[in-house]
Write a protein that binds this DNA or RNA. Sequence first.
DNA 1: TAGGACTACAATGTATACAATTATTCGTCA
DNA 2: TGACGAATAATTGTATACATTGTAGTCCTA
Lengths: 244, 244
Amino acid sequence: MSKAERVSQAEKATIGLRSLIMEGAFHPNTRLREVALAERLGTSRTPLRQAMDTLVAEGLLERAESGGCRVTSLDIDDICDSIELRGVIEGTAARLAAERGADPELLAQGEALLEGLDRSVAEPANIDFPTYVRLNGKFHNLLAKLPGSAVIQRELERVNRLPLASPTAFLREQDLVPDFMRSLIRAQGQHRAILEAIRDGEGTRAESVAREHARLARNNFAFLTKAEPHLATRIPGLALVTSE
Amino acid sequence: MSKAERVSQAEKATIGLRSLIMEGAFHPNTRLREVALAERLGTSRTPLRQAMDTLVAEGLLERAESGGCRVTSLDIDDICDSIELRGVIEGTAARLAAERGADPELLAQGEALLEGLDRSVAEPANIDFPTYVRLNGKFHNLLAKLPGSAVIQRELERVNRLPLASPTAFLREQDLVPDFMRSLIRAQGQHRAILEAIRDGEGTRAESVAREHARLARNNFAFLTKAEPHLATRIPGLALVTSE
DNA sequence: TAGGACTACAATGTATACAATTATTCGTCA
DNA sequence: TGACGAATAATTGTATACATTGTAGTCCTA
């Protein structure tokens, strides 16, 4: 709080534009006009163009053939593939951590996070959902660090930024899933299994559980969007999905 | 030849800067000075800064804490991890292609490439090496397309651009590896096995062979740099590796 | 009326001027 | 002599002016 974060225009533009896109301010495939957008974001074209480059790298925008950018149009399968890919890389992180032996300090942090997650879902009638979401994010961030490889960490964090791919992307909307409580408890069991396998040096197990964990998210997402499209509109970022 | 490709200043800067870095024009961790570099590349700061953003995304540069960019410093293990990760994603592409059924047209193209590769290594005494390298690159590009997923294709192509991670990154220096011929023939066998498994819908097999295929590259790289560092200097891009 | 070319306009790409920040050097004081 | 600090230089970040490229509309012609 005390730290008056100095924020550059470029960051401001990136954050602002990302928000606009995720909120669905533009239809998929909309061509972005630089002058108008810059004015709307309260900055000039230079940092806006930087922001556009960033969002192209993140997959929210695509370069248009004759210059400029369009808002990415994804379909549900694209997002499922992003989640699958995230699971694959998370699985690799878990496997490498197990094979190489993870830092005990980080493992201890993981244990602490697991206990916090346990507590937040302990009473099925009265779940501390914000806490669960926060700790879940921290747990997955920890997973990226566990193999002690800058490359793996960076690339996993990158894939987490793909539209709707991150472990927390639509978690807060899991109350839309009918057997949501069961899904949450299963997910927490998987968290524990992953960390256990890493601690015990069981690379193959760590990898397969991490993959399965992502598939739980993927299936929830697919169920929501396919079976309950009217509810799915509450998912932020879904505006990128072309309605069909 | 006839097509007079109109090349933008930004592309010129990106290509030029990437070349400089790969050739080892800067030591790892060198801070890049924009005005001097822009002049050296024959362009202005604006497209240069774009190029720097691009190369940051590719992993060749890193943002410095107080603005600007530094040349990335990698160690050998970082590059091994990049190759491992490439193998993991290639394996996923192969598995998904097998599970979903790949486009017969693309599979036929793959068969044709395999035959070309076979021909180029048919006579151990007189290998057509440039052809092998070219077809090998095409084969791996095809692999990225086979699952028919824009997300998978894009992310695999991205990981291929990580420093020294691509399937052809240091292939042309495999003549430095003592049992180079054996390695090449084994790699070609793996190519065939991957395509076979995809065609037969054997996802698990496709994935594991593709992973093993990348590990062959990884091991060759590790051998070269660890056992024969004086020879390894011939590998382009190795300038990114901090000498220790 | 359809097609093509020319013209005017609008949007992007590039260069540069300017502002803000960071690094450096020199001087002074302990 | 060493350390702190102010002044200054160097460098990055931002805005804007300019150049170039794409686009659409209209008018002319077949």
